[in-house]
Design a protein around this nucleic acid. Structure first.
Lengths: 110, 110
DNA sequence: TTCTTATTTGGCCATATAGCCAAATAGCGA
DNA sequence: TCGCTATTTGGCTATATGGCCAAATAAGAA
């Protein structure tokens, strides 16, 4: 791969990788609605708080969320809401896949 | 996490994970312009053909590309072009990150 | 200062992934 | 049939990731 393009694709891949986890997608979607602190998110996700904290740091390192300490909580916020538009596209892929799958199933029943 | 939501997030995460690799992003972008066969993509990416073939099967399993044998090549095509819109969003995140980074640098120089 | 609450970090293990090489497979033309 | 070209698969190793537990840290309240 062209040396000038490589860092560009690597940077994009890092962002996508940061999103590519069920718990982190839940976090992203939730933070789009409202800011949340770690223990609220932990409750929603239902895994260990240390695990959730690590997920949050992945999102933060990718620049997808930011955090702010207030009162006795650290509140996390979604930095870029256009991410949500993308989820719509992912859903399109998923339903296209489902349709494909159905087509195959039907052709097997014949 | 709610049992009814979990599979949904897992499905989305699988799609994102399939995209989250520099070579696969290059493939996606290239296929949006035109269909390509494995050896063309291999040349662009510059790694072993077996590696590229595996990347393509990742994309195919996620339903992002489809393949069609014609003449003596297997041509790969992008199935869902809305993916490209998303790349735009990723770029927004990246430039927001870069701006942030600059701000920090400037504040250090003071 | 000591306790408490909220969060992060380190350690460990199990699993997944990328990459290369070599070998297998598929289809075509001689 | 044999050999050629295009592609995939298997095997291997190195590295990264997710998850939990336990311990560390931070900041406020008693």
């Amino acid at each position: 791969m062209n040396d000038s393009l490589k860092p560009r694709y690597e940077a994009r891949a890092r962002i996508l990788k940061a999103m590519a986890h069920p718990s982190r997608l839940l976090i992203i979607e939730e933070l789009q609605k409202q800011e949340r602190c770690v223990n609220e998110l932990t409750e929603m996700i239902g895994s260990d708080m240390s695990t959730v904290s690590k997920h949050l740091s992945v999102l933060k390192n990718a620049g997808l969320v930011s955090d702010e300490k207030r009162a006795n909580c650290i509140y996390y916020t979604l930095r870029c809401t256009c991410i949500l538009d993308f989820i719509g596209c992912v859903e399109e892929v998923l339903s296209a896949n489902a349709e494909e799958h159905n087509k195959i199933l039907k052709s097997c029943k014949k």
